[in-house]
Write a protein that binds this DNA or RNA. Sequence first.
DNA 1: AGCATATACTTAATATGTTAACTAAATCAA
DNA 2: TTGATTTAGTTAACATATTAAGTATATGCT
Lengths: 152, 152
Amino acid sequence: MNVANIEVKDKTLKIRDFEHSLPMALLRARETVMQHFRPILSEHDLTEQNWRVLRALDSFGETDISTLAKHCCVLLPSMSGMVKRLEARGYIERTSNSQDQRSSLLSLTESAQQLILDVSPHSEATYKAIEESFGKEDLEKLYELLFKLEKI
Amino acid sequence: MNVANIEVKDKTLKIRDFEHSLPMALLRARETVMQHFRPILSEHDLTEQNWRVLRALDSFGETDISTLAKHCCVLLPSMSGMVKRLEARGYIERTSNSQDQRSSLLSLTESAQQLILDVSPHSEATYKAIEESFGKEDLEKLYELLFKLEKI
DNA sequence: AGCATATACTTAATATGTTAACTAAATCAA
DNA sequence: TTGATTTAGTTAACATATTAAGTATATGCT
């Protein structure tokens, strides 16, 4: 018997409730999407988060680690370790910031730029396939609703 | 300069590209939603995942750990550890499965059922607030699109 | 200048995500 | 019935998430 809704005799309603949970629905949807992208990334020994960081540096250019973390939706301690590992693998460089000795500026190495050139076409193709399967109009509508949800 | 789109003179297009990424949009939206729920859960020393597990057990009733993991969108090794910790805290019980000695059946303790009764009203209220702020029709539309996305 | 406070980041500790290896029980085939 | 294979779970190893504590530099006040 379901304690959170004791008047419900069978579990049908409560199960729909669980499946209908907004965080759950967002998680499942994201999982489905990522299942299409992860094989491409893992071929290059990149995690989903690694790819996010490299793409963000490519998009926004040289930035400090805090700004990068915000863009990538990653907490600073996670980013700290990730950058350290990507630096060790030769994908990220640090330049000391003359204005503030506490932080440094991060940028992509040549090797990382080449990696992005290699991976991007596959990533783009996967995205196009999703867009085609899902429908361009529905996808635009989904973005609209997701962006709206970010602002509540 | 953005390597993945070298003909782009400034970074505007590439930045929008990054922000417009579907996994990123889903992640950000989910983060926004969870920021509303996490304070309630952390008051009871529950992680987001813990709450998912307890709610799933409440909804689906006694189940084996593999089924539970699928419902919660969690991998089996993660679930294995989580169940062990929730069991140690007195929230989950194991019953040996006479049909199959490899697995056992999991269920909620009285204490967990009481916990759900305590937390649910706050969780419900938060959900209602989100629903009101976001709009009921848009929320239904969002669910519809998310469920559709799960099926691609 | 000198001290208190704030800021930027790292490190630590523990939980969870992810893949691979491992254990034990169940099933299947000869 | 025995031996190979499959299935259900756990454990291991490492990456990331999360909160708290620690370190060094900047800034503001007196």
